[in-house]
Amino acid sequence: MSPESKEATTVSPNDAELELHELVQLHQVMVWRYLRALGADAALADDLTQDTFLEIMRRPLEQFNETATAAYLRRVAHNLFISRRRRESRMTVTQHAEQFETAWLRWAGFDSGNELLDSLKDCFARLTHRAQLALRLRFGEDASRQAIATALGITEHGAKNLMQRAKSQLRECLENKK
């Protein structure tokens, strides 16, 4: 058992109960983003974020540390999301949670994703104007590839390549910033 967990188990039950307000303040942004990244729309992310914290509060939570709590919140959120999708018969997810957790940690790390967004903005500014425009149209306005191609005066295939290259450059830039 690690020193951290030893410490956690000695905490008295009363002290170990989290204050909801503090818990929400610390982790709501992360949970909401996690749900959005999973594919939830904004309204569903709102609802499931709420449900995630309620689920936590229904049981006496022993807080080991913020990272462990964050990971636990993500798992609860993930399970709630899957349950909701299954009720709607829209998706069957089986062992996706671990892969998604790994992917989340790869990009967002141990914070709520704010650092990543700052880095992303910086990297985005280094792209060419055409690449920026293509990504803005694609991710900001949900434009189709055809619409992007028309806006940039290139072929559809060219638009696809441009966006792929731009994303690849962004990834490289982010990796170098780590």
Binding site: D46, F100, W107, L120, F139, G140
Partner: peptide, 24 residues
């Protein structure tokens, strides 16, 4: 998927809402 989401959030400017009071 995760990368695309962050890209989307950055480009669209849609940031997470404050749900504190709602959850409480």
């Amino acid at each position: 998927q995760v990368f695309d989401y962050f890209l989307k959030e950055m480009v669209s400017g849609q940031s997470p809402p404050d749900l504190s009071s709602r959850i409480a």
